[in-house]
């Protein structure tokens, strides 16, 4: 019965008087792409930060692959198979694209208390890193400094780093935010190619991207999930239309 990869129960987080997350129940099935949408200030980023372990919830529990991971911080959750992209692109700007991905591979290749051998000449790190870069279409840019990549390329790099940790669950925080049409189309194609093979949570504003990628959608409004369902059901849901879609589309 338990094909649930992630089970969130009663997750709550307040900042002073503001209840950013208010008793959220949320599930992700193995292999599905589950989108979270909601108006600005609905608590989406707070929610995803609690999933990744960057924020501690006030209440509630997070179970991952049948295990309670609520007390674990971000690095420990990453070891369990979480990976994330940030709303504001988060990469190692002073390193090359290849270094960035190689570091992600290194993070999951045993401990790093190795002091002598130059990491940049280790095929065990560099070869797979190249493959992941190729996989997101950045193969040509391997030796470019990450800071010099375009915005869209940096987003792709971030996805490559997340994938290189071989995650069981990928958390994507607005992956197409701030992108031009062409860049955003390339990202959607990339994510679409992962669909089915890779379990994903997609927090996104871009409704086209959400409705083309998601298997299920949850709508977050004022810290509560007001509806969860297949894209067609969500479109049809009057409460959602009033709260959110009605204003927007």
């Amino acid at each position: 019965m338990n094909d649930m990869l992630l089970e969130v129960r009663g997750l709550s987080k307040s900042f002073g008087a503001l209840r950013a997350c208010d008793g959220i129940d949320f599930d992700v099935r193995e292999g599905e792409t589950h989108a979270v949408i909601g108006p600005n200030g609905a608590g989406k980023t707070t929610f995803i930060s609690q999933l990744s372990g960057d924020l501690r919830p006030d209440q509630g529990s997070i179970r991952f692959a049948g295990q309670d991971v609520t007390p674990l911080r971000a690095p420990a959750r990453a070891k369990k198979g979480f990976a994330r992209s940030f709303q504001i692109t988060s990469i190692y700007r002073e390193f090359t694209a290849l270094d960035n991905v190689a570091l992600a591979i290194q993070a999951h290749a045993g401990h790093s208390f190795r002091f002598w051998k130059p990491a940049r000449s280790e095929p065990a790190l560099r070869d797979p890193a190249r493959q992941y870069l190729d996989g997101v279409g950045l193969g040509e840019r391997a030796n470019a400094l990450a800071a010099n990549l375009s915005h869209g390329e940096q987003r792709q790099l971030e996805v490559a780093m997340a994938l290189a940790t071989k995650p069981r669950l990928l958390l994507l925080d607005e992956p197409v935010a701030g992108m031009g049409t062409e860049e955003s189309q390339r990202m959607v194609t990339l994510l679409d190619s992962l669909k089915g093979r890779q379990t994903m949570i997609l927090v996104e504003h871009d409704m086209d991207a959400v409705f083309s990628l998601a298997d299920r959608i949850s709508v977050l409004v004022y810290g509560r999930i007001i509806a969860t369902g297949a894209p067609l059901d969500i479109r049809a849901n009057t409460e959602v239309r009033q709260a959110y879609l009605g204003e927007d589309s």
């Binding site: 960057d54 990976a83 002073e94 780093m161």
Partner: peptide, 17 residues
């Protein structure tokens, strides 16, 4: 590399483990 990566971007380091 881990040391320098953490200097460059601590949040990213934590996120990859």
């Amino acid at each position: 590399m881990v040391l320098r990566a953490a200097k460059s971007n601590e949040a990213r380091s934590r996120a990859i483990g």
